[in-house]
Design a binder for these strands. Sequence first.
DNA 1: TGAACATATGAACAATTATTCATATAATGT
DNA 2: ACATTATATGAATAATTGTTCATATGTTCA
Lengths: 107, 107
Amino acid sequence: MAKKVNINDKKTGMPKDEYLSDVADLFKMFSDSTRVKIMFALMDKELCVMDISSLLNMTQSAISHQLKILKSANLVSNRREGKTIYYMLSDDHVKSIIAQGLDHILE
Amino acid sequence: MAKKVNINDKKTGMPKDEYLSDVADLFKMFSDSTRVKIMFALMDKELCVMDISSLLNMTQSAISHQLKILKSANLVSNRREGKTIYYMLSDDHVKSIIAQGLDHILE
DNA sequence: TGAACATATGAACAATTATTCATATAATGT
DNA sequence: ACATTATATGAATAATTGTTCATATGTTCA
């Protein structure tokens, strides 16, 4: 039988503060339209920084800053190929979270 | 045959800016731990403002402000019963979004 | 080695935001 | 009408955050 980890607080019955804070931090990554656009663009294929900045019509610096934030949250990863650095989603969850968001607003 | 609404931009092939901004705005509602806690608490049952503030150990005012924000995003609704106002989730999407967030961080 | 290109980074700034405090609104019971 | 209880709201404040600008780092090729 699989071990069941208890994430709930004994008093409130809710998940411990830490977990719900982590949930909020996760969604914070999706709460900025630039980041959402970046992640959406990466759903199909990997892209380099310049690709993304011209696709979104934003400066290389702005994109680079946001990519760093997404990477620190482990939502994107990258690989270098010569001078170019390609970014990709690091997790299928990203796709389904965005899909669910679109679902909700289009309902 | 159902009518297919095109939400994509012709140039980029991505959903139009407006939609991805709306997605970001939706997730912004889930990007604050107080709001996440409130919505989690409302998953089971409706609660009045005082219930929520004592459950989360926060002031009535802070909770009231956040409830207003959630209501303006149509994520919660309320009903009055005498002096008391009960809040509830207005949408099953809320549950599944939070569940998916928890899923991701617990994986 | 040096020029050219791709990306990263730090500081600064404006804008947004969550909470607090004080007070207002609304409903109830006496 | 008045005191009490429940909730809402406006202003103020501190903290966080996204973008810009200037510059640094790292890679390639001649």
